[in-house]
Design a protein around this nucleic acid. Structure first.
Length: 455
RNA sequence: GGCCGGGUGGCAGAGUGGUCAUGCAGAGGCCUGCAAAGCCUUGUACGUCGGUUCGAUUCCGGUCCCGGCCUCCA
């Protein structure tokens, strides 16, 4: 078994990964706040950590992967008020949309998708523990985490207390003992959703659900915690503070992984710039598989620029591999793990290097006329596709799409063209080919057979 | 201001102390009736200034840019 190295934000280096328990891996990734459609930036961690999930599943017999659904949050409350909707109808709708979009991107469902609203008792118990242990205090119906009680605070982001003070720009609420103290529980106005608690009718604070759900489903210390790099501070710091203080200094996670951000045409996505790209909208215009390819075409920690050219490139690349799989398609092959590709993924999920290996395999395929060699390469491509979550479609479906009536028409024209070519009537055969091209159909003559694809 | 990344050939994007990343685009060729696909060939790339070294894009230091976080955010 190849060793897996992962870049750990905690140590700022690639560390050899081994799970706490030999045969089980626990993975938690911060999931969506369900108040709107997922944008392409939301999709990056989903796809990146999906590759990690697939890789871990290959390496370990039991991987438990939890990705939370944040269905209580001030943004949700605002959206509901604006749209006049009950909270649950809004959150369930966008939770479903999220699942559909991520499914389209071929991300495997996590083992668990716990909802915040279904873990109020656990969150309240956690608050209770923190108060009892002297890490939290009640003020004005709020419960606040006492940052001063946790000297190791902000170790993940490596910010000293002075640095944090220097950077603080937020107005300090009067009920806070210290500016950095963060809310574990806050009171709700009568028209806002709330739950009864000893402190007030209110709702959980920002970071609490992750700590509570990790403890409830995965354990006190998990192997890997993932999310976008914007979450390092303060979200993950606060999760750590809550969990570590509640659990007598047991670490929350051993490996912290963070993905980089996406820009669109070189610009940060923002609603004011109007360049906000939702997965839903994009997958109406582009192949979701090409989107996935593009998402994996840069290393996950690097920034990724989302462009039409990148999508076009992704699609062309996929054409190449489906072209290989299309040849001798009737042959069903057993997947065979390619060590070079597997090794690239084991080196901190180096998907660009993995893609380069894919190109090498395709070139070897075309250069060889040996059936055994070609079969071996197909097996490797198939296994690689399984790891990366690509190349899972039927090749003809990839190239031709689903329209059976049109396909029959095209096949009939191809037959007419073949007849014309047989009698060396190239004028007619070229006319048919040009006519198809005008319809966006590209023909390829190979080995006495003509195949077609959509341009 | 503090913390953290990054500056690689026309573009995208890996990586390494001293022979190739890879893909797209471009040029030439092979194959093809012609194409398409594929194959072959082709490009003095590593912000800048110093240092270490036999040798640095790769290590160290300075410097100039760019980006992210510090406030809701994947």
């Amino acid at each position: 078994m190849l060793p897996l190295y992962l870049y750990n934000t905690l140590t700022r280096q690639k560390d050899l990964f081994t799970p706490l328990k030999p045969a089980e891996v626990t993975l938690y990734v911060c999931g969506p706040t369900v108040y709107d459609y997922a944008h392409i930036g939301n999709a990056r961690p989903v796809v990146v950590f999906d590759v990690l999930f697939r890789l871990l599943n290959w390496l370990y017999p039991n991987v438990r992967y939890a990705r939370n659904i944040t269905d209580i949050d001030d943004k949700i409350i605002t959206a509901c008020a604006e749209q006049g909707l009950p909270m649950e109808s809004l959150t369930r709708r966008f939770e479903l949309a999220f699942r559909e979009d991520m499914f389209a991107l071929n991300a495997l469902p996590p083992t668990l998708e716990p909802r915040a609203t279904e873990h109020l008792p656990q969150m309240l118990a956690l608050i209770d523990t923190l108060i009892k242990k002297g890490h939290a205090y009640v003020a004005d119906g709020h419960v606040l985490f006492d940052v001063a009680s946790f000297p190791a605070y902000a170790a993940l982001s490596r910010r000293s207390a002075e640095d944090r003070l220097a950077g603080a720009r937020v107005e300090v609420a009067a009920y806070k003992k210290n500016p950095e103290d963060f809310v574990l529980w806050k009171p709700s106005a009568p028209d806002q959703p709330g739950w009864d608690s000893p402190h007030s009718r209110g709702r959980p604070g920002w970071h609490l659900e992750c700590s509570a759900m990790i403890a409830a489903h995965l354990g006190t210390t998990i192997d890997i915690h993932g999310g976008g790099n914007d979450l390092i501070f303060p979200h993950h710091e606060n999760e750590i503070a809550q969990s570590v203080c509640a659990h007598d200094n047991a670490p929350l996670a051993r490996f912290w992984l963070h993905n980089g951000f996406i820009t669109v045409n070189g610009q940060k996505m923002s609603k004011s710039l109007g360049n906000f790209k939702t997965v839903r909208e994009l997958r109406g215009e582009h192949s979701p598989e090409a989107m996935r390819w593009l998402l994996l075409s840069a290393h996950y920690r690097q920034p990724l620029d989302w462009t039409d050219e990148g999508l076009k490139n992704a699609r062309q690349n996929l054409d190449k591999f489906y072209g290989v799989l299309r040849e001798s398609e009737s042959e069903v092959v057993e997947p065979l793990v390619d060590d070079a590709l597997f090794g690239a993924l084991c080196d901190d999920l180096n998907t660009p290097a993995a893609f380069a290996r894919l190109h090498e395999l395709a070139a070897d395929f075309h250069k060889s006329s040996d059936a055994a060699v070609r079969r071996d390469i197909k097996r490797r491509l198939t296994a690689s596709g399984l790891l990366l979550g690509i190349l899972q479609q039927d090749a003809e479906t990839w190239f031709q799409g689903g329209n059976a009536a049109e396909a029959a028409d095209i096949e009939s024209l191809i037959a007419q063209r073949a007849a014309a070519r047989a009698r060396k009537d190239f004028q007619t055969s070229d006319m048919i080919r040009d006519g198809l091209l005008a319809r966006g159909i590209v023909l390829e003559d190979k080995a006495g057979q003509t195949v077609w694809k959509r341009a």
